[in-house]
Design a binder for these strands. Structure first.
Lengths: 187, 187
DNA sequence: TCATAATTGTGATGTTTGTCACACTCGAAC
DNA sequence: GTTCGAGTGTGACAAACATCACAATTATGA
């Protein structure tokens, strides 16, 4: 598991053993079971998570009780309610397990400490954040340019694995359509 | 104009005069007129921009000739086709002036140089990137949870100034609705 | 194994939104 | 002042999508 994190960081930034040991000391490892919450809407957000294995959903529950999936977090993804994490406010979204999941967690203090004491990690987090921003913009573009069917096909192409791992209802609430419409699209 | 950039950075990170002089040496100032392009879809993206004054649109033109506005960039905003900028690929979107506009521009080399040589700026860019990511996620949430009318009202509330500065057609292509629908919503 | 819940497909119907067509206003350029 | 084009509003109709209802199938746990 340590190796997974190390290899992940080294895809962007080469590390010495000592540096990785230092990095690792800022993280905790945590295990969760299906349906467990890592973050609960309305509560404090103390950690940002790196997913070693399993699958999470970042989800917003509206006043009508509908759930809207902002993001799935799979292996190798970094996830949190970033707004609440960085600004130290209450969570607007929940982060919940779709499968049993293992993560590395890092507190905001350790995130900031690591960024400044090891500039390499600052630049790693910067790159990750930029990639996250780009991914979100692509998702926005997908809403602007494509109808439900096209968005469905884009998702199918981008994450074919997802279709065997999560119920269609969740895919629908990620795509922003009703589960009935999604069902009709796939036939 | 220099003062504007300085004050902007100092909202997040305090600076000495020497530091700011060093920072400024990595930027160029540029002036554009209404309808000028800072970035052209399909071409290289050499700069990221800080908007001193004026107004820009980050826009994707699809194969049917329709334009989709990913973002407006107003005073104090940082904008570029970040994907093309960071990954050194061709621009997927254009960045074009809605009004006469003054910007500071920074090349990717200088962005990286500044981030590493002045760690404060690395942490400034990291914070800005995180804020950009958060803003994009909020926009996604708005698409997931709200219909055209609600998105319209959210925009009205968030950027009331925009409604006097840009034609409704552009607002419509930001909201992801036809201009006719937007027209009917406001009455 | 059985009972129960979760997931999925599909028809009927209503609402939302897009598209096409046309008219009107207003400001800029000549 | 006239002309032109961009911006805007609105009616009529079509397409996309949501909602409600119900049946069928597939996990899942005691």
């Amino acid at each position: 598991m340590k190796e997974k994190l190390k290899e992940h960081i080294e895809k962007l930034i080469p590390l010495t053993e000592d540096e990785f040991t230092f990095i690792l000391s800022h993280f905790s490892i945590e295990k969760y079971k299906k349906n467990d919450f890592l973050i609960q809407q309305g509560e404090n957000v103390n950690y940002c998570y790196y997913v070693v294995s399993g699958l999470l959903k970042l989800v917003f529950n509206d006043k009508d009780g509908k759930q809207h999936i902002v993001s799935f977090a799979m292996e190798d993804w970094w996830e949190s309610d970033f707004s609440a994490y960085f600004m130290q406010t209450k969570a607007k979204m929940s982060l919940q397990c779709i499968e049993n999941t293992i993560v590395f967690s890092i507190s905001l203090k350790n995130y900031q400490k690591l960024s400044t004491e090891l500039p390499k990690m600052g630049s790693f987090f910067l790159k990750k954040s930029n990639l996250g921003h780009i991914a979100s913009q692509n998702r926005i573009l997908s809403f602007l340019t494509s109808n439900a069917k096209e968005r469905y096909e884009q998702l199918l192409k981008q994450y074919p694995l997802l279709f065997q791992r999560v119920p269609k209802t969740l895919l629908a609430s990620y795509l922003g359509v009703s589960r009935e419409t999604l069902s009709r699209l796939s036939s």
